[in-house]
Design a protein around this nucleic acid. Structure first.
Lengths: 121, 121
DNA sequence: GCGCTGGTGAAAAGAATGTTAAGGAAGAAT
DNA sequence: ATTCTTCCTTAACATTCTTTTCACCAGCGC
């Protein structure tokens, strides 16, 4: 698939998810946007990775919770939302022109790189 | 880690209903028309799914109500109608060339993809 | 025409998510 | 051990979106 990457460091490049300008290096838990490192914390990275497992598909909060924290999500728990908020902020700092995490009301979130709604053109 | 494997519930390629250009992904609660996402709300999706259970068959309002809200439909309740209206609008936005929800006067609705009357005259 | 059913637009009510900040736990540095 | 730093969680309030409800109009069938 990726000849250039394979030439460099076959071992480390193995576990990475690439979605447009977003790259998640699962091995060392790093998120890169447009090649620039977004300083995500461990939890933030885990939440993002949970979404990245099913790109462009809606992932329920419950699924995210189960995957990151394990077990059932307590009723009215806001942990996922708060982490999503910070993920958005940090990704936007690096790449303001892109939107990655989309809300699906009443269900959950969906990860897909899309040009942001900056009416500026 | 994850104690119960049952918690993961990976509804990856969950079952979906396909009716011509319309696809309902029940797991994700997403509706696609011609491959394009129609941003239905949860209720709207539920109503559409209730109709989709019996494609091309007339489904009474009472049945839709029982399936979505549960219980008997209050007399003079317009909830189903209002949601059908919005479903129609949103589907038409994505695929103006198709009509999906057909009214059966005095009875209910029927879901079937048909070319719309764009004859414009 | 008349009564009834459905279409439609919009306000009101309700629920979910966005956002910010405080407080505490855990580890690093001193 | 104490202080400093970072991160996670929780709570509270703000905002946005959804659902319900209502009023009025249009169309169907008698």
């Amino acid at each position: 698939m990726n000849t250039a990457a394979a030439l460099r460091t076959p071992n480390f490049e193995e576990d990475s998810i690439v979605l447009g300008p977003l790259e998640l290096r699962l091995g060392d838990r790093e998120a890169l946007v447009t090649g620039v490192r977004a300083a995500l914390t461990v939890r933030e990275f885990q939440v993002l990775a949970a979404l990245a497992e099913r790109p462009d598909r809606v992932v329920t909060r419950e699924d995210v919770y189960a995957r990151v924290w394990g077990g059932r999500m307590p009723h009215r728990d806001r942990a996922v939302d708060v982490h999503v908020k910070r993920i958005r902020t940090k990704l936007a700092q690096v790449a303001p022109a892109w939107m990655f995490v989309h809300t699906h009301f009443g269900i959950g979130y969906r990860l897909a790189p899309e040009p942001s709604e900056t009416g500026a053109n």
